[in-house]
Amino acid sequence: MDRWRVLLGDREVARFDLPEGGSVVVGRGADADVRIDNPAVSRSHCRLVRQGGHVRVEDLGSRNGTFVNGVRVEGNAPVGPADRVTLAKFTVQPATGPTGRGTDLDATVVLGRRSGCSVPLRRLVCLSGRAEPEVVELSGRGVVRVGKGAECEARVAGFALGRVQFTVLASAEGHVIAHRGRWRATRVADRKIGGEPVRLSPGDEIVAGPVRFRYE
């Protein structure tokens, strides 16, 4: 129970250590030990404490509650190795083995028909705001459109976002992103982008209005 991770669906969005005698605050606030940037998560949402080999989770008066195996935590509750702690759409659980699944996923490659070449799996993960789906697979797709329109592969909600707000395209040099909306800007790694395609690097954050994605 040393290593823990935070999952959104089956994607790891954060990991942290919880040593014996230690405690960790999970929340949206800048002072949380483990930050989850999602509006449904309170600034200081919950605290995990490890004492005498046992782990307990304490709800810190969060608005949307902390759950262990689906049961809302009143005050605090024990957490075993097989238990799942959930807050909003996020799951907090012990990482099994010395390397968690996130590492395995990062190493996953697809051997395409292009024998001898391998393509890393890439995706957009919604970190905050409303997006459907929240994890958008990019591999094998020539284009992924993100916007409010029905034609988009990823639908998002937010005032003044475009029918197609931005698009991610598969180019020879990896994925590129181009802004397509009219009213609200699209930012990549804190820089406003235009219609000129910009290369994406793993870890880049893409922000359009209230919606935020990470390219990974």
Partner: peptide
């Protein structure tokens, strides 16, 4: 027949 990797884009 074989577009698993998608078409490729450039500009």
């Amino acid at each position: 027949v074989a577009l698993d990797a998608g078409p490729e884009y450039t500009w």
